[in-house]
Nucleic acid binder design. Structure first.
Lengths: 352, 352
DNA sequence: ATGAAAGCGCTAACAA
DNA sequence: TTGTTAGCGCTTTCAT
């Protein structure tokens, strides 16, 4: 049985072509002046031997892995790729990484090990990285600070850190939430509850800001007891559906910070015979595929996750160019627009 | 501005610890006998300098990248991670890859370049790979043959090749389909149509086999004109909804080869005022999250995609062990069971 | 236009 | 128990 592949190296190509190893490299890398006859001979020899230069050796000598890393948060009990949010961002990243000639290395965080992003650079597994699902907690800030100190190219997606000037791509969640809540108010809702996610995510804070702004503009009071905190899971939405309806006074409308929680609410309500768009108005967030399938279809805020992933890669490429040219690239935070998608769930029927 | 990270190498650790470079390696790799005092000194020096061995240099000398590759098919106009099928398999792969101390390299195929899986091994970017979405077409068979010839560890997921003995993990789609169609027949349906995917996927062929078997057992005739071919997209299901209902005789029931197409059918029918579970019975396949959300909820066949991904990694690990011990591992094709999930969409109402 | 040779950071065999 | 040394396959100067 054959063990491992027989790997041809430069030496054999050089021998077959009757040239030096250096010449083989020159031909294959298109560098320096080469006689046309020599080039032909080398290419032919390489073809005959089915030679492929070792990416590892190249990385080793160039001190570039050719990989862009994507750091994935640990989310308990969730198949991370199966969440609309991550999968869309990753698709966008994948497309752009490939287009730029890099490979994509996935780095899975585990709950046991402490956050250390810089290690991936020190170990030289990656040349740049994108961090998904970052949270505003001390150890995260520390890990990011270390990246900045090391001068390693990185880009955040969908998270900002107050007081830090990092590269990042975010969506305008303040406006997105503002528009969703304004829409609910325009439907005639006077008592609009908000099911938010954890505040350690900047986008949760943004949504709260948008919610408040819309209430204020609509002349409705902001009442802290009308803000509930879930954890962006369907289950947490489902659990909160109880507190949101069994309470003496049921709100006219609910704005949920993502579609999964909105779907949980929908399910909880359905079990109690309540229907969104009839008994209570509901708007979600993310405009996931699921939003179009629920009964009733869910009003939601579209976020350009796919584009965000692609833009993050472009920022990395630019950072790396700046580095190699010793130019100090200005940190850049890009904010992409969101869009409200109105569907039947947000209808409000005043005679309740 | 600092350009790139200052990377510490073994030499500096050796100097600081006052030992040779070899000793540093020995301590860090826990190899050979080491005096306890020496070990302490080295570890302390490494800690002080924040030293991380270069993974590239290690890979280079060991001729092992430490990466497991996942080859992703090119699917036009689809964000690949956003399909239930791929995302679940990938989640399973990711978990298991991490558990085994490897990193996950994603390899995106593009429609322009011709299929060449062996190159990733020749370039030494990966030590083993999983191939997703393989099709039974000549160039795919050629690419796989090359992998086998090279003795490179690889594993297929959800696809088999007649006449080849490759490692692979599949689900029992014959039985899965058989059970779905039998269920439809048991509901009283006499005319059961089948919306299948392209036959270049072995699992489409398997489904057809299960469909035929169930019909035969139910004493219903197999009629080729009742089999339609979509491409597993929602859109293709939507398009076929017309041919399936505008035709003179509408079937009693439809078995769709995946949930996306089933959802397309549902949408097409809804526009015509037809409702699954009332006017026509419908069963899908995959038991995706969406199946639980549709109106009506979709009867579907659950496939353990997550487990399949994990098992594929385990096969790779075993292959690599066999290689390193020069043992000839027996190619192994594993078939996991599926499970029918009955929901309202498959109700059949004879008075049509 | 081409060859010779140094060196990238590490592992592993051999010496001591 | 530790040090010395020879590569690993490539890129890149420096000669020629």
């Amino acid at each position: 049985m054959e063990i491992g592949g027989l790997v041809i190296n430069r030496k054999e190509v050089a021998k077959l072509a009757g040239v030096s190893e250096a010449t083989v490299s020159r031909v294959l890398n298109n560098v320096g002046p080469i006689a046309d006859r020599t080039r032909q001979r080398v290419l032919e020899a390489a073809r005959q031997l089915n030679y492929h230069p070792s990416a590892i050796a190249q990385s080793f000598v160039k001190r570039k892995s050719g990989n862009i890393g994507v750091i994935l948060p640990y989310v308990p009990k969730v198949h991370i790729f199966s969440t609309y949010y991550f999968s869309e961002i990753l698709s966008g990243i994948g497309e752009q990484v490939k287009r730029n000639g890099y490979d994509l290395l996935l780095l899975f965080l585990t709950p046991e090990e402490e956050l250390n992003y810089a290690q991936y650079f020190q170990k030289q597994k990656i040349d740049a990285c994108i961090i998904l699902g970052a949270r505003d907690v001390p150890q995260e800030r520390k890990a990011l600070l270390e990246l900045e100190r090391g001068g390693y190219p990185f880009c955040l997606v969908n998270q900002r850190f107050e007081g830090c000037r990092y590269y990042g791509v975010d969506a305008d969640h303040v406006t997105g939430s503002y528009e969703a809540v304004r829409h609910l108010a325009e439907q005639g809702a006077k008592d609009i509850a908000f099911v938010n996610g954890p505040m350690m995510y900047s986008n949760s804070a943004d949504r709260l800001e948008g919610y408040r702004r819309a209430l204020e503009e609509a002349g409705l009071p902001y009442r802290p007891e009308r803000v509930f905190e879930g954890n962006y899971s369907r289950k947490s939405g489902y659990s909160l559906s109880a507190s949101l309806t069994l309470q003496g006074s049921r709100p006219d409308a609910v704005f949920a910070a993502n579609d999964r929680m909105a779907i949980g609410l929908l399910q909880g309500w359905k079990e109690k015979g309540l229907e969104a768009g009839r008994d209570i108005a509901l708007a979600g967030y993310d405009d996931s595929d699921a939003a179009k399938l629920t009964g009733p279809p869910l009003t939601s805020v579209d976020v350009p996750f796919f584009e965000m992933g692609g833009r993050a890669v472009e920022h990395l490429i630019r950072q790396m160019q700046a580095h190699s040219e010793s130019i100090a690239g200005e940190p850049f935070y890009e904010i992409l627009p969101t869009r409200l998608m109105v569907r039947p769930s947000s209808k409000f029927n005043p005679r309740k």
